[in-house]
Write a protein that binds this DNA or RNA. Structure first.
Ligand SMILES: [Mn+2]
Ligand SMILES: [Mn+2]
Ligand SMILES: [Zn+2]
Ligand SMILES: [Zn+2]
Lengths: 137, 137
DNA sequence: GTGTTAAATGATAATGATTACGATCTAGGA
DNA sequence: TCCTAGATCGTAATCATTATCATTTAACAC
């Protein structure tokens, strides 16, 4: 996923094309494969839009996540955002706790787990590996 | 882990035996294998200690987690606590989103993942499966 | 291009979880 | 019993998230 495609998806969902959304998507493009917090995006956003409402950044990030453009995780009780992966296969991520950079993990144990939990209805799951990426350690 | 053993561990770490801590551990005993929020524990706690400080419950839960008596997770941005499992084997949990009840998952993919991530330093990982337990669905 | 309108933004405040702090109380040892 | 470090209480600060409403603007019809 990238900002150009994201603007199309926004339009498909009936959302307007605003300067603010374009800027936000550009920022997300610059953090490719990296989880970024609302606060950091708002700070970078504010350089172009001084006095921008925090809520505008916050609300748009949640909108983008809602329609599948972004994916999210929570680190230290703070929500983080990044473009949704393009690959069609189900996978998970290694997340660098220093820079937020992610690496794909093409291995998911949830199918095997389901077999070992008879009577349980599995709705979703979370598998994340944390550490330092090659550049950070 | 249970309240009796927990009181011993507290003493081993130089913490005092207080009525409040005893009550808190009793409450945790009553929620065996179930994740409970600070708020819920504080409400139950307040029945015996009207006007109890929220901070007392909160601080003690974090103390107990620090010294390995409790384990924690975060659901909807709210921290949840339960007694640490007695089993010595590394494992993960299915968590019922209706009642908090957990079931052990004796399967961890992190070793295999490490092999597929050369150059990455792996510090920790999270694997949780969510859904409805047999009693709730 | 002009006007219309629903959506988006800005400004600000409310909420809820977490954390901090000083005064008071108390467990546990001398 | 007395002393004191640690624990609790009462209260407030902090931080992320969410809500509200007046103002602005993108998209569309004319
Ligand atoms: Mn990916
Ligand atoms: Mn367990
Ligand atoms: Zn998976
Ligand atoms: Zn594991």
């Amino acid at each position: 996923m990238n900002s150009t495609r994201a603007l199309e998806v926004l339009k498909e969902h009936g959302y307007k094309h605003t300067k603010q959304r374009e800027k936000l998507l550009t920022l997300l493009d610059q953090h490719d494969d990296i989880y970024v917090s609302v606060k950091q995006l708002w700070e970078e956003f504010s350089e172009d839009f001084p006095g921008a409402s925090y809520d505008t950044v916050y609300r748009n990030l949640y909108t983008l996540a809602d329609i599948g453009i972004l994916e999210t995780t929570s680190l230290d009780g703070e929500k983080q955002f990044r473009f949704h992966c393009d690959t069609s296969d189900h996978h998970h991520h290694f997340i660098c706790t220093a820079c937020g950079k992610t690496s794909a993990i093409h291995l998911c144990p949830v199918e095997d787990v389901a077999l070992s939990l008879p009577g349980h209805q599995i709705d979703n799951h979370k598998f994340e590996v944390y550490g330092k990426c090659p550049a950070c350690h």
